[in-house]
């Protein structure tokens, strides 16, 4: 474990908690893409199948359980508890355009052609594009509440910190996971446009992000 990965995991946890609390306390999921949240729940489900078979550390197990519980709880809030506030007309990204290529690629490019490894690869590829429905929804509505932008900031920051973690691990222990690194770079690039808007608009104290 290194400081970059720890800060990355904390940033990821903060993002997930920010979103969950925003929906739970405002009793509304307006402006939130339910599709992205379903994709994230799928990412955790296909990645953490080894939850009961391989024990890494208490931290690893606890964080996996927390991520799984909070992601499914968020999907529950959006599609069941506060479904009247779910803006399905704006959440129109065709997720099949993500799932099919990601599934195909995970069969073609993986470390080992076994179910558990292909599902892990699927989760890595899927995570890199899972935010697209949410970013698409913001461009479509032309705005986002500031709390939603803070969620996106910490979510984007987490994988950027993981890139630093992989640089650190490469130089200190020769660790290199090509599939995770390439996907992580792609994932972080998708946030660059948002990061620019976040820094130039939201941090200037605007109540919410309105796209030009």
């Amino acid at each position: 474990m290194n400081v970059f990965r720890l800060l990355g995991d904390v940033s990821h946890l903060v993002a997930i908690i920010i979103l969950f609390l925003k929906i739970f306390r405002s009793k509304s999921c307006a402006g939130i893409s339910g599709k992205s949240q379903v994709l994230f729940a799928l990412v955790f489900t296909t990645r953490y199948l080894d939850l009961f078979t391989s024990f890494i550390s208490i931290y690893n197990t606890v964080m996996k359980v927390v991520f799984l519980v909070l992601s499914y709880a968020t999907v529950y809030l959006i599609y069941l508890r506060f479904r009247s506030s779910y803006d399905s007309e704006s959440d129109t990204f065709r997720v099949e355009f993500l799932l099919v290529p990601v599934a195909g690629l995970s069969f073609l490019e993986n470390y080992d052609f076994t179910p558990i490894e292909i599902l892990w690869t699927f989760s890595i590829y899927l995570e890199s594009v899972a935010i697209l429905p949410q970013l698409f929804m913001i461009t479509k509505t032309g705005e986002a509440e500031s709390i939603t932008t803070h969620y996106l900031f910490f979510l984007g920051l987490y994988r950027a910190l993981y890139l630093a973690n992989w640089v650190w691990r490469y130089h200190t222990e020769g660790f290199f996971d090509q599939i995770a690194v390439v996907s992580g770079v792609v994932q972080t690039i998708f946030y660059c446009d948002f990061f620019y808007l976040y820094v130039t608009k939201v941090l200037k104290g605007n109540s919410k992000l309105t796209l030009p």
Partner: peptide
């Protein structure tokens, strides 16, 4: 299949 990197990350 090349060696599978350890999966100790979240």
């Amino acid at each position: 299949d090349e060696a599978v990197p350890t999966k100790d990350e979240l």
